[in-house]
């Protein structure tokens, strides 16, 4: 596969054209996956023998938590692309993704609290995972605030990219620091733990729950993708508008 062909999409016009074509299909697919995943998960799975019906919030909690991290990773990649190759679309995609990532983090935190209340008897505990997500939320806040504060678009893109790089390192550091600071209540990663699907251990998550979970994760991924593309389009147009207005003023 020729990866160089990908750079063609860094052209704003090409990006908008392609996005217009892809978006409808992507949105429908996202709605479909989320609808199926959530309805299946909420209404057609048995209650857990220990956790009861509360376990079903997993269909919101896990996908949003995954997306919260993955969107930050995506911002890291697009920031790097901006620093190295200086494609405007890349920087704008990072800008477009940040609020979505922040909302995902917020959803993960809120659903976590709602789940935690019946399970652990408390809305909030200073558990490493929860704390890490709170810190991630703060990073998103700072990143977005920096974008908003700077008027010159290129300067803002440069500064936020570097902040994203440095922030990623510190976010990782914080993760380890927080782990060190408090061993927590939170269960281990539900899905990625050693072949949860095929394994036959006591702890493994049974297929009954896993399949709708994967469908709903796919739905969240598609939804985020659709939102990011849509917002990137908007950012490109807003950026173009600002450039045109600046030019108007000059002439």
């Amino acid at each position: 596969m020729n990866f160089n062909a990908l750079w063609a999409y860094a052209n704003p016009r090409k990006f908008i054209e392609t996005a217009d074509k892809v978006l409808p299909a992507l949105s429908v697919l996202a709605a479909l996956c989320m609808g199926v995943g959530l309805v299946w998960g909420f209404f057609f799975t048995p209650d857990d023998y220990r956790q009861g019906a509360t376990v079903k919030i997993i269909y919101l909690h896990v996908p949003s938590a995954l997306m919260a991290i993955n969107i930050w990773l995506m911002m890291l990649v697009t920031s790097l692309v901006w620093i190295v190759r200086r494609h405007h679309v890349s920087a704008l995609a990072a800008r477009a993704a940040a609020p979505i990532g922040m909302v995902m983090t917020l959803i993960a935190l809120i659903t976590g609290a709602i789940w935690g209340q019946p399970m652990w008897g408390t809305w909030w505990a200073w558990d490493p995972r929860l704390t890490s997500f709170l810190i991630l939320f703060l990073f998103y806040l700072g990143y977005i605030a920096l974008w908003e504060a700077i008027e010159n678009d290129d300067t803002a893109a440069d500064l936020t990219s570097i902040l994203c790089l440095v922030g990623s390192v510190f976010a990782l550091l914080s993760r380890y620091a927080v782990n060190f600071w408090n061993q927590g209540l939170h269960q281990g990663a539900s899905i990625l733990r050693g072949a949860a699907l095929v394994g036959d251990t006591e702890e493994r998550m049974s297929n009954v729950y896993a399949v709708p979970l994967f469908v709903s994760i796919a739905g969240f991924v598609l939804l985020s993708l659709a939102l990011i593309i849509l917002r990137t389009q908007t950012e490109i147009r807003a950026r173009r508008m600002r450039a045109l207005m600046a030019r108007e003023r000059m002439n």
């Binding site: 016009r13 173009r240 450039a243």
Partner: peptide, 13 residues
């Protein structure tokens, strides 16, 4: 000189 306004990519600079 002012750049042609329908030059889409040019408006990015």
């Amino acid at each position: 000189r002012p750049v042609e306004l329908d030059d889409f990519d040019g408006a990015f600079l």
